[in-house]
Design a protein around this nucleic acid. Structure first.
Lengths: 185, 185
DNA sequence: CGGCGGTAGTCACTTTTTTTACTATGCAAC
DNA sequence: GTTGCATAGTAAAAAAAGTGACTACCGCCG
Protein backbone atom coordinates (compact mmCIF):
# COMPACT_ATOMS: atom_id res chain seq x y z
CA UNK A 1 0.00 0.00 0.00
CA UNK A 2 2.99 2.25 -0.29
CA UNK A 3 4.28 1.50 -3.74
CA UNK A 4 0.96 2.77 -4.98
CA UNK A 5 1.72 6.30 -3.88
CA UNK A 6 5.01 6.24 -5.70
CA UNK A 7 3.15 5.02 -8.78
CA UNK A 8 0.57 7.77 -8.51
CA UNK A 9 3.35 10.32 -8.22
CA UNK A 10 5.16 8.83 -11.20
CA UNK A 11 2.02 8.74 -13.32
CA UNK A 12 0.41 11.97 -12.27
CA UNK A 13 1.52 14.12 -15.11
CA UNK A 14 2.05 11.57 -17.82
CA UNK A 15 0.09 8.59 -19.05
CA UNK A 16 2.41 5.59 -19.17
CA UNK A 17 2.60 1.88 -19.81
CA UNK A 18 3.89 -0.61 -17.27
CA UNK A 19 7.01 -0.82 -19.31
CA UNK A 20 7.51 2.96 -19.31
CA UNK A 21 7.10 2.92 -15.57
CA UNK A 22 9.60 0.13 -15.14
CA UNK A 23 12.08 2.32 -16.98
CA UNK A 24 11.20 5.38 -14.97
CA UNK A 25 11.66 3.39 -11.79
CA UNK A 26 15.09 2.28 -12.95
CA UNK A 27 16.14 5.84 -13.63
CA UNK A 28 14.57 8.84 -11.94
CA UNK A 29 12.28 7.31 -9.32
CA UNK A 30 15.12 5.01 -8.20
CA UNK A 31 16.16 8.04 -6.24
CA UNK A 32 13.48 7.49 -3.62
CA UNK A 33 11.72 4.23 -4.42
CA UNK A 34 12.74 0.91 -5.86
CA UNK A 35 10.42 -1.64 -7.39
CA UNK A 36 10.72 -4.53 -9.80
CA UNK A 37 8.60 -4.68 -12.96
CA UNK A 38 6.56 -7.51 -11.42
CA UNK A 39 5.60 -5.36 -8.52
CA UNK A 40 4.58 -2.59 -10.86
CA UNK A 41 2.34 -4.73 -13.04
CA UNK A 42 0.62 -6.29 -10.09
CA UNK A 43 0.03 -3.00 -8.37
CA UNK A 44 -1.18 -1.33 -11.57
CA UNK A 45 -3.82 -4.07 -11.95
CA UNK A 46 -5.03 -3.56 -8.42
CA UNK A 47 -5.10 0.17 -8.74
CA UNK A 48 -7.12 -0.02 -11.91
CA UNK A 49 -9.55 -2.41 -10.22
CA UNK A 50 -9.92 0.08 -7.38
CA UNK A 51 -10.53 2.95 -9.73
CA UNK A 52 -7.37 4.91 -8.98
CA UNK A 53 -6.16 4.47 -12.53
CA UNK A 54 -7.81 4.07 -15.88
CA UNK A 55 -6.23 2.07 -18.65
CA UNK A 56 -6.58 2.08 -22.39
CA UNK A 57 -5.10 -0.36 -24.82
CA UNK A 58 -3.03 1.05 -27.63
CA UNK A 59 -2.51 -1.18 -30.61
CA UNK A 60 0.92 -0.98 -32.03
CA UNK A 61 2.18 -1.89 -35.40
CA UNK A 62 5.55 -3.35 -34.92
CA UNK A 63 5.36 -4.17 -31.23
CA UNK A 64 3.03 -5.90 -28.82
CA UNK A 65 0.02 -3.87 -27.76
CA UNK A 66 0.44 -1.86 -24.65
CA UNK A 67 -1.82 -0.53 -21.93
CA UNK A 68 -1.47 3.10 -21.01
CA UNK A 69 -2.46 4.02 -17.49
CA UNK A 70 -3.51 7.40 -16.25
CA UNK A 71 -4.54 8.72 -12.87
CA UNK A 72 -8.27 9.16 -12.30
CA UNK A 73 -9.92 11.78 -10.11
CA UNK A 74 -10.10 9.15 -7.38
CA UNK A 75 -6.38 8.56 -7.87
CA UNK A 76 -5.64 12.26 -7.60
CA UNK A 77 -7.71 12.38 -4.41
CA UNK A 78 -5.84 9.38 -2.99
CA UNK A 79 -2.53 11.04 -3.76
CA UNK A 80 -3.62 14.24 -2.08
CA UNK A 81 -4.82 12.28 0.96
CA UNK A 82 -1.47 10.52 1.12
CA UNK A 83 0.37 13.83 1.26
CA UNK A 84 -1.70 14.85 4.27
CA UNK A 85 -0.34 11.95 6.32
CA UNK A 86 3.05 12.03 8.01
CA UNK A 87 5.40 10.01 5.80
CA UNK A 88 6.82 6.82 7.21
CA UNK A 89 10.46 6.96 8.13
CA UNK A 90 12.77 6.16 5.26
CA UNK A 91 13.98 2.61 4.97
CA UNK A 92 17.22 1.68 3.32
CA UNK A 93 18.92 -1.57 2.55
CA UNK A 94 22.46 -1.18 1.46
CA UNK A 95 24.40 -4.44 1.35
CA UNK A 96 27.56 -2.69 0.28
CA UNK A 97 27.64 -0.72 3.52
CA UNK A 98 27.00 -3.90 5.49
CA UNK A 99 30.06 -5.38 3.84
CA UNK A 100 32.06 -2.27 4.64
CA UNK A 101 30.90 -2.30 8.26
CA UNK A 102 32.23 -5.85 8.49
CA UNK A 103 35.47 -4.93 6.76
CA UNK A 104 37.68 -6.48 9.42
CA UNK A 105 36.11 -9.87 8.69
CA UNK A 106 35.56 -9.33 4.99
CA UNK A 107 37.13 -10.43 1.75
CA UNK A 108 38.74 -7.09 1.01
CA UNK A 109 39.32 -7.49 -2.76
CA UNK A 110 35.63 -8.31 -3.27
CA UNK A 111 34.54 -5.34 -1.24
CA UNK A 112 36.93 -3.08 -3.09
CA UNK A 113 35.52 -4.30 -6.40
CA UNK A 114 31.99 -3.71 -5.14
CA UNK A 115 32.86 -0.15 -4.16
CA UNK A 116 34.36 0.47 -7.58
CA UNK A 117 31.23 -0.88 -9.23
CA UNK A 118 29.06 1.32 -7.10
CA UNK A 119 31.08 4.42 -7.92
CA UNK A 120 30.66 3.68 -11.60
CA UNK A 121 26.96 3.15 -11.15
CA UNK A 122 26.65 6.41 -9.24
CA UNK A 123 28.45 8.27 -11.99
CA UNK A 124 25.96 6.97 -14.53
CA UNK A 125 23.02 7.86 -12.37
CA UNK A 126 24.44 11.28 -11.75
CA UNK A 127 24.63 11.88 -15.49
CA UNK A 128 21.06 10.70 -15.94
CA UNK A 129 19.82 12.97 -13.19
CA UNK A 130 21.73 15.91 -14.55
CA UNK A 131 20.23 15.38 -17.99
CA UNK A 132 16.75 15.24 -16.48
CA UNK A 133 17.44 18.39 -14.54
CA UNK A 134 18.61 20.19 -17.67
CA UNK A 135 15.40 19.07 -19.36
CA UNK A 136 13.27 20.47 -16.56
CA UNK A 137 15.16 23.74 -16.47
CA UNK A 138 15.08 24.26 -20.22
CA UNK A 139 16.82 27.54 -20.86
CA UNK A 140 16.10 28.97 -17.43
CA UNK A 141 18.65 29.31 -14.63
CA UNK A 142 17.96 27.66 -11.28
CA UNK A 143 17.00 31.06 -9.92
CA UNK A 144 14.45 31.72 -12.64
CA UNK A 145 13.09 28.21 -12.34
CA UNK A 146 12.68 28.43 -8.59
CA UNK A 147 10.79 31.66 -8.97
CA UNK A 148 8.47 30.61 -11.75
CA UNK A 149 8.86 26.94 -12.76
CA UNK A 150 5.96 24.61 -12.33
CA UNK A 151 7.66 21.26 -11.80
CA UNK A 152 9.04 22.17 -8.40
CA UNK A 153 8.47 18.69 -6.96
CA UNK A 154 10.48 16.78 -9.55
CA UNK A 155 13.11 19.53 -9.45
CA UNK A 156 13.57 18.98 -5.73
CA UNK A 157 13.68 15.19 -5.87
CA UNK A 158 16.20 15.40 -8.68
CA UNK A 159 18.35 17.77 -6.66
CA UNK A 160 18.25 15.25 -3.83
CA UNK A 161 19.29 12.48 -6.18
CA UNK A 162 22.12 14.55 -7.57
CA UNK A 163 23.58 15.46 -4.22
CA UNK A 164 23.15 11.88 -3.06
CA UNK A 165 25.07 10.45 -5.97
CA UNK A 166 27.78 13.07 -5.65
CA UNK A 167 28.24 12.13 -2.01
CA UNK A 168 28.22 8.50 -2.99
CA UNK A 169 31.03 9.04 -5.45
CA UNK A 170 33.04 11.10 -3.00
CA UNK A 171 32.59 8.53 -0.28
CA UNK A 172 33.53 5.67 -2.60
CA UNK A 173 36.73 7.42 -3.58
CA UNK A 174 37.60 8.03 0.05
CA UNK A 175 36.94 4.40 0.86
CA UNK A 176 39.12 3.22 -2.03
CA UNK A 177 41.97 5.50 -0.95
CA UNK A 178 41.79 4.13 2.57
CA UNK A 179 41.64 0.52 1.39
CA UNK A 180 44.59 1.14 -0.90
CA UNK A 181 46.53 2.41 2.04
CA UNK A 182 45.53 -0.18 4.61
CA UNK A 183 45.19 -3.26 2.43
CA UNK A 184 47.56 -2.62 -0.47
CA UNK A 185 47.64 -5.08 -3.35
CA UNK B 1 18.35 -13.84 4.31
CA UNK B 2 19.72 -10.36 4.13
CA UNK B 3 18.92 -8.94 7.51
CA UNK B 4 21.11 -11.66 8.89
CA UNK B 5 24.22 -10.18 7.38
CA UNK B 6 23.47 -6.82 8.90
CA UNK B 7 22.98 -8.58 12.24
CA UNK B 8 26.27 -10.42 11.95
CA UNK B 9 28.00 -7.14 11.14
CA UNK B 10 26.31 -5.42 14.07
CA UNK B 11 27.17 -8.22 16.49
CA UNK B 12 30.61 -9.11 15.27
CA UNK B 13 32.63 -7.18 17.78
CA UNK B 14 30.23 -7.00 20.65
CA UNK B 15 27.92 -9.47 22.37
CA UNK B 16 24.44 -7.93 22.56
CA UNK B 17 20.85 -8.61 23.54
CA UNK B 18 17.96 -8.26 21.12
CA UNK B 19 17.10 -5.09 22.87
CA UNK B 20 20.60 -3.67 22.48
CA UNK B 21 20.45 -4.48 18.81
CA UNK B 22 17.09 -2.81 18.42
CA UNK B 23 18.68 0.32 19.83
CA UNK B 24 21.75 -0.01 17.63
CA UNK B 25 19.50 -0.39 14.60
CA UNK B 26 17.66 2.78 15.56
CA UNK B 27 20.89 4.72 15.81
CA UNK B 28 24.03 3.73 13.97
CA UNK B 29 22.96 0.86 11.72
CA UNK B 30 19.94 2.90 10.59
CA UNK B 31 22.45 4.43 8.25
CA UNK B 32 22.40 1.42 5.95
CA UNK B 33 19.77 -1.00 7.24
CA UNK B 34 16.44 -0.67 8.95
CA UNK B 35 14.64 -3.35 10.91
CA UNK B 36 11.97 -3.48 13.56
CA UNK B 37 12.56 -5.22 16.90
CA UNK B 38 10.21 -8.02 15.81
CA UNK B 39 12.32 -8.75 12.79
CA UNK B 40 15.44 -8.81 14.91
CA UNK B 41 14.11 -11.24 17.50
CA UNK B 42 12.83 -13.63 14.88
CA UNK B 43 16.03 -13.57 12.92
CA UNK B 44 18.17 -13.97 16.04
CA UNK B 45 16.22 -17.13 16.93
CA UNK B 46 16.77 -18.58 13.49
CA UNK B 47 20.41 -17.68 13.46
CA UNK B 48 20.95 -19.32 16.81
CA UNK B 49 19.15 -22.43 15.59
CA UNK B 50 21.44 -22.50 12.58
CA UNK B 51 24.54 -22.14 14.69
CA UNK B 52 25.57 -18.70 13.46
CA UNK B 53 25.08 -17.23 16.91
CA UNK B 54 25.37 -18.51 20.41
CA UNK B 55 23.22 -17.17 23.21
CA UNK B 56 23.58 -17.05 26.96
CA UNK B 57 20.98 -15.96 29.46
CA UNK B 58 21.97 -13.28 31.92
CA UNK B 59 19.83 -13.00 35.01
CA UNK B 60 19.14 -9.48 36.04
CA UNK B 61 18.06 -8.03 39.33
CA UNK B 62 15.65 -5.29 38.58
CA UNK B 63 14.74 -6.20 35.01
CA UNK B 64 13.64 -9.21 33.05
CA UNK B 65 16.41 -11.63 32.16
CA UNK B 66 18.09 -11.04 28.87
CA UNK B 67 19.80 -13.19 26.28
CA UNK B 68 23.14 -12.06 25.00
CA UNK B 69 24.05 -13.20 21.50
CA UNK B 70 27.48 -13.52 20.04
CA UNK B 71 28.78 -14.60 16.67
CA UNK B 72 30.14 -18.15 16.42
CA UNK B 73 32.91 -19.33 14.12
CA UNK B 74 30.24 -20.47 11.70
CA UNK B 75 28.76 -16.97 11.87
CA UNK B 76 32.09 -15.39 11.16
CA UNK B 77 32.52 -17.71 8.20
CA UNK B 78 29.05 -16.81 6.91
CA UNK B 79 29.86 -13.12 7.19
CA UNK B 80 33.08 -13.60 5.30
CA UNK B 81 31.28 -15.58 2.61
CA UNK B 82 28.72 -12.80 2.31
CA UNK B 83 31.42 -10.23 1.66
CA UNK B 84 32.70 -12.32 -1.24
CA UNK B 85 29.39 -11.95 -3.07
CA UNK B 86 28.48 -8.86 -5.08
CA UNK B 87 26.11 -6.82 -2.90
CA UNK B 88 22.56 -6.38 -4.09
CA UNK B 89 21.69 -2.94 -5.36
CA UNK B 90 20.58 -0.57 -2.65
CA UNK B 91 16.87 -0.27 -2.08
CA UNK B 92 15.28 2.83 -0.63
CA UNK B 93 11.77 3.76 0.32
CA UNK B 94 11.36 7.39 1.11
CA UNK B 95 7.75 8.49 1.43
CA UNK B 96 8.74 12.08 2.05
CA UNK B 97 10.33 12.30 -1.39
CA UNK B 98 7.25 10.70 -2.93
CA UNK B 99 5.21 13.47 -1.37
CA UNK B 100 7.63 16.06 -2.68
CA UNK B 101 7.57 14.55 -6.17
CA UNK B 102 3.79 14.97 -6.10
CA UNK B 103 4.02 18.51 -4.76
CA UNK B 104 1.72 19.99 -7.37
CA UNK B 105 -1.10 17.74 -6.13
CA UNK B 106 -0.10 17.70 -2.48
CA UNK B 107 -1.26 19.28 0.71
CA UNK B 108 1.61 21.70 0.93
CA UNK B 109 1.41 22.59 4.65
CA UNK B 110 1.59 18.89 5.56
CA UNK B 111 4.55 18.33 3.30
CA UNK B 112 6.28 21.38 4.67
CA UNK B 113 5.76 20.08 8.21
CA UNK B 114 7.10 16.69 7.17
CA UNK B 115 10.24 18.28 5.73
CA UNK B 116 10.73 20.26 8.93
CA UNK B 117 10.36 17.09 10.97
CA UNK B 118 12.84 15.29 8.78
CA UNK B 119 15.38 18.07 9.09
CA UNK B 120 15.10 17.89 12.87
CA UNK B 121 15.47 14.15 12.76
CA UNK B 122 18.52 14.44 10.55
CA UNK B 123 20.10 16.93 12.93
CA UNK B 124 19.69 14.49 15.78
CA UNK B 125 21.10 11.64 13.79
CA UNK B 126 23.99 13.77 12.68
CA UNK B 127 24.84 14.51 16.30
CA UNK B 128 24.64 10.84 17.17
CA UNK B 129 26.91 9.89 14.31
CA UNK B 130 29.37 12.59 15.17
CA UNK B 131 29.51 11.40 18.75
CA UNK B 132 30.12 7.85 17.58
CA UNK B 133 32.84 9.07 15.26
CA UNK B 134 34.54 10.98 18.07
CA UNK B 135 34.41 7.80 20.13
CA UNK B 136 36.06 5.77 17.41
CA UNK B 137 38.73 8.38 16.82
CA UNK B 138 39.56 8.85 20.48
CA UNK B 139 42.36 11.39 20.63
CA UNK B 140 43.60 10.64 17.12
CA UNK B 141 43.07 12.87 14.10
CA UNK B 142 41.37 11.44 11.04
CA UNK B 143 44.79 11.17 9.41
CA UNK B 144 46.28 9.17 12.26
CA UNK B 145 43.21 6.98 12.45
CA UNK B 146 43.19 6.22 8.75
CA UNK B 147 46.83 5.23 8.96
CA UNK B 148 46.62 3.06 12.06
CA UNK B 149 43.08 2.65 13.42
CA UNK B 150 41.51 -0.75 13.42
CA UNK B 151 37.81 0.02 13.11
CA UNK B 152 38.07 1.20 9.52
CA UNK B 153 34.75 -0.35 8.53
CA UNK B 154 32.60 1.42 11.11
CA UNK B 155 34.58 4.59 10.48
CA UNK B 156 33.63 4.50 6.80
CA UNK B 157 29.97 3.71 7.35
CA UNK B 158 29.78 6.50 9.89
CA UNK B 159 31.34 8.92 7.44
CA UNK B 160 28.71 7.90 4.92
CA UNK B 161 25.97 8.49 7.47
CA UNK B 162 27.37 11.87 8.39
CA UNK B 163 27.61 13.15 4.85
CA UNK B 164 24.17 11.73 4.09
CA UNK B 165 22.55 13.55 6.99
CA UNK B 166 24.36 16.78 6.16
CA UNK B 167 23.03 16.60 2.62
CA UNK B 168 19.62 15.79 3.98
CA UNK B 169 19.65 18.90 6.14
CA UNK B 170 20.91 21.08 3.32
CA UNK B 171 18.32 19.72 0.94
CA UNK B 172 15.53 20.19 3.48
CA UNK B 173 16.50 23.80 4.01
CA UNK B 174 16.56 24.40 0.27
CA UNK B 175 13.14 22.79 -0.08
CA UNK B 176 11.73 24.91 2.74
CA UNK B 177 13.08 28.10 1.19
CA UNK B 178 11.52 27.22 -2.13
CA UNK B 179 8.19 26.34 -0.56
CA UNK B 180 8.25 29.57 1.39
CA UNK B 181 8.72 31.45 -1.82
CA UNK B 182 6.26 29.57 -3.99
CA UNK B 183 3.58 28.72 -1.46
CA UNK B 184 3.85 31.48 1.16
CA UNK B 185 1.70 31.23 4.27
C1' DC C 1 18.61 -16.59 -41.34
C1' DG C 2 19.84 -17.05 -36.49
C1' DG C 3 20.55 -14.97 -32.41
C1' DC C 4 20.40 -10.86 -29.42
C1' DG C 5 18.26 -7.13 -27.36
C1' DG C 6 14.33 -4.19 -26.56
C1' DT C 7 9.28 -3.80 -25.92
C1' DA C 8 5.19 -5.42 -23.22
C1' DG C 9 3.66 -8.07 -20.33
C1' DT C 10 1.71 -12.70 -17.13
C1' DC C 11 1.90 -16.54 -13.69
C1' DA C 12 3.24 -19.26 -9.76
C1' DC C 13 5.75 -19.52 -5.84
C1' DT C 14 8.60 -18.19 -1.84
C1' DT C 15 10.45 -15.07 1.27
C1' DT C 16 10.24 -11.01 3.87
C1' DT C 17 8.13 -7.49 6.19
C1' DT C 18 4.65 -5.39 8.73
C1' DT C 19 0.91 -5.37 11.88
C1' DT C 20 -1.44 -6.39 16.01
C1' DA C 21 -1.63 -8.11 20.10
C1' DC C 22 0.22 -10.10 23.92
C1' DT C 23 3.39 -11.06 28.84
C1' DA C 24 6.36 -9.26 32.30
C1' DT C 25 9.25 -6.08 35.52
C1' DG C 26 10.77 -1.76 37.49
C1' DC C 27 11.48 3.25 37.86
C1' DA C 28 10.12 7.84 38.17
C1' DA C 29 6.93 11.44 38.12
C1' DC C 30 2.71 13.41 39.41
C1' DG D 1 -0.96 4.86 44.02
C1' DT D 2 -1.31 4.71 39.29
C1' DT D 3 0.13 6.22 34.88
C1' DG D 4 3.58 6.27 31.57
C1' DC D 5 8.06 5.00 29.91
C1' DA D 6 12.02 1.83 29.37
C1' DT D 7 13.54 -2.84 29.46
C1' DA D 8 13.08 -7.58 27.32
C1' DG D 9 10.86 -10.14 24.88
C1' DT D 10 6.91 -13.77 22.07
C1' DA D 11 3.14 -15.22 18.76
C1' DA D 12 0.20 -15.36 14.80
C1' DA D 13 -1.59 -13.54 10.71
C1' DA D 14 -1.81 -10.53 6.90
C1' DA D 15 0.35 -7.86 3.44
C1' DA D 16 4.01 -6.84 0.50
C1' DA D 17 7.96 -7.85 -2.08
C1' DG D 18 11.04 -10.69 -4.58
C1' DT D 19 12.37 -14.74 -7.71
C1' DG D 20 12.20 -17.32 -11.74
C1' DA D 21 10.21 -18.86 -15.63
C1' DC D 22 7.39 -17.97 -19.45
C1' DT D 23 4.92 -15.85 -23.90
C1' DA D 24 5.16 -12.80 -27.77
C1' DC D 25 6.72 -9.64 -31.42
C1' DC D 26 10.01 -6.88 -33.84
C1' DG D 27 14.36 -4.89 -35.61
C1' DC D 28 19.08 -5.16 -36.31
C1' DC D 29 23.62 -7.10 -36.80
C1' DG D 30 26.55 -10.20 -38.71
Amino acid sequence: MALRNALLAALIDRESSGYDLAKKFRVSVANFWTATPQQLYRELEKMEAEGLLSARVVKQDKRPDKRLFSVTDAGRAALHAFTRLPPKPTTVRDELLVQVEALAYADVPSVRAAIEAQVKHSRQRLETYERSLAEILGSRTDEEFIATGNRIGPYLTLQRGISFERENIGWGELALRILERRFPG
